[in-house]
Nucleic acid binder design. Structure first.
Lengths: 335, 335
DNA sequence: TTGTAGGCGTTATCAG
DNA sequence: CTGATAACGCCTACAA
């Protein structure tokens, strides 16, 4: 391994001169600096990050907390897309991404301990159980953190705008003349709560009476449960004219039931998804859905985190909402 | 930050005694060891990985090379599933996962340089352009590597058994009585070559005459191109009785065309996918496909890599083939 | 069984 | 402009 020392010997200058030259300090003569850089290049020098961060207490390393609580985890395109974007945003700023978990070596450690041990400059927290004490410990620690889709008091967060999403969906459906609209929602998380609150308030605003029989809980990314709920809706005497699904993927379950009954989308029943994953736009008829901007969310989360890392004094906890976009598709019929 | 020194002062013993006690060396008396451990616990001591790896030249850190050459990258469930499994396999052995890329800080660096800089103990290489000189440099370096779905001379690799996959598909289709079978394949990679070679040889073995008009190139994970190819097949005078798609997701493109023509799967035309992603088993009729065992592939890749890291002398380059499983589904009709 | 001392590769301070 | 020198936190001969 080529070290600073090798270069200093090769060039006949001191250790510190080499260090300064390579780090672009300006108290080194142009010629020496050039000579040192050439030598470094020639000898194939690479800095040693461990030594460097031992000294500087910086690692250029961002931790990512991504526990697949739902066990669909990275298989969910919303999250894999976000990860991809976190990765490339971090890379473009010169940071690496390391997954944070609970165990390292023989030791069991908390997320905070892990991040600390690895010297992460900051951590992006997404897709975890936010009520977990371990997560809370991390958020309350001195390590900069940014959360996605959940708000803690002292920590910046980036939120997919679920209020807007559901509002747009409800308004669109209403504008198409639907008055009996069923909703299948995911498990009870803060995301779900926001979506449903938005749905209810939008209904109220539009003067739409809510029938609680038309609201059912299923799970995100679980087509089977959405299929069940769909069946129950279709069995009602006064069946809804439109069903809103927890997400695009779950809709596939509903689709099967609908087709099995010999019904046609959207002629016999309208449907609408959530997420805007690739699949939604490939299906025919093209699915009406609200596209969450997972790429933007990941990007902003990283930006905000790096800002906090590099300018801790200037950076204040902030809640950033990222709106998505209604993709009109072809599955909501004009009544 | 609590360091070894703090503990040593607290306990009134030396630095090295603490270090040894914490690392379970047995030349420390039971009582002292216990006292030290208690103090460490009490003070909230955490080892500093940078300092440790500076000394030991180990980081307990595995790099992952995951460049989305196809730009669908992690959005492809085959890869996101594999990553998830790499992550958890590494975690269970006490290793962390860090993504390797080309840039760090202001510097542009090669993959090798990046991995070296980060001190990765080893690197798993998956989903990249394997002909890239940078990738080759990494593989030929002193850093242990394992590749997925590609074989280099001196490096262990884990392969999804594409020969078996295509063989099973062909045999199954044949056993169902199909004789005019069309294939849409992905872009020209070694994976594609293996699948096609396997298809051709299986056809030959079964005495099936290959009609080159029934083979078309599209791209993986690209429903549009598969839709085009499907259309051309359906326009043929003597249309195939079965179409094999490059992957499950691409099949959706074909499905649209088929339905648009008013044809029914499998009554009017049989179809078969590849990958066995969640979607395939949700579709109705359930898609016949070959499920690649991405979880197993990721797990084995990590195992093999860690073996190589920890026992370099015992570990020899090895090519491990992971077979998948034909999911019979309902989209191939008995003729 | 415990302690001393040196060094891993860097950076930073301060004197020349 | 350049060079000694001392850290950063940890591990490990070797000495006691």
């Amino acid at each position: 391994m080529v070290t600073l020392k090798d270069i200093s010997e090769y060039c006949g200058v001191s250790n510190s001169t080499v260090s300064k030259a390579l780090n672009g300090q300006k108290d080194i003569s142009k010629q020496t600096a050039q000579r040192v850089r050439d030598a470094a290049q020639k000898l194939g020098y690479l800095p040693n990050s461990a030594a460097r961060s031992l000294k500087t207490n910086k690692t250029l390393n961002i931790g990512v907390l991504f526990v697949d609580k739902t066990s669909s985890g990275l298989r969910h395109e919303y999250f894999s897309g976000m990860l991809e974007s976190i990765k490339s945003a971090a890379e473009s700023k010169g940071y690496d991404i390391t997954f944070i978990s609970r165990n390292l070596g023989e030791r069991q450690m908390s997320f905070y301990e892990h991040a600390k041990y690895r010297g992460c400059d900051g951590v992006v927290i997404a897709s975890v159980d936010f009520s977990n004490p371990d997560v809370i410990e991390l958020v309350n620690s001195e390590i900069p953190t940014v959360t996605v889709d959940y708000v803690y008091d002292r920590c910046s967060s980036v939120l997919s705008d679920n209020l807007d999403g559901m509002k747009q969906i409800a308004e669109y459906v209403f504008s198409k003349g639907h008055r009996r609209v069923a909703v299948i929602h995911g498990e009870n998380t803060s995301v779900t709560q926001k979506r449903m609150a938005s749905f209810r308030s939008t209904c109220k605003r539009l003067g739409l009476i809510l029938d609680e029989k038309l609201i059912k809980e299923a799970r995100y990314h679980d087509p089977k449960l959405s299929a069940l709920a769909t069946r129950e809706f279709l069995d009602l005497d006064d069946r809804p004219t439109c069903i809103i699904y927890p997400d695009d993927f779950s809709f596939i379950g509903g689709k099967n039931i609908i087709e099995q009954r010999g019904l046609k989308v959207p002629d016999d029943i309208s449907v609408i998804g959530y997420d805007g994953i690739l699949l939604s736009q490939i299906l025919r008829p093209k699915l009406t859905t609200y596209k969450q901007n997972s790429v933007e969310i990941g990007k902003i989360a990283v930006q905000k985190l790096i800002e906090q890392i590099e300018e801790p004094s200037l950076s204040i906890p902030e809640i950033i909402s990222v709106t998505g976009k209604l993709l009109k598709g072809e599955t909501v019929k004009e009544l």
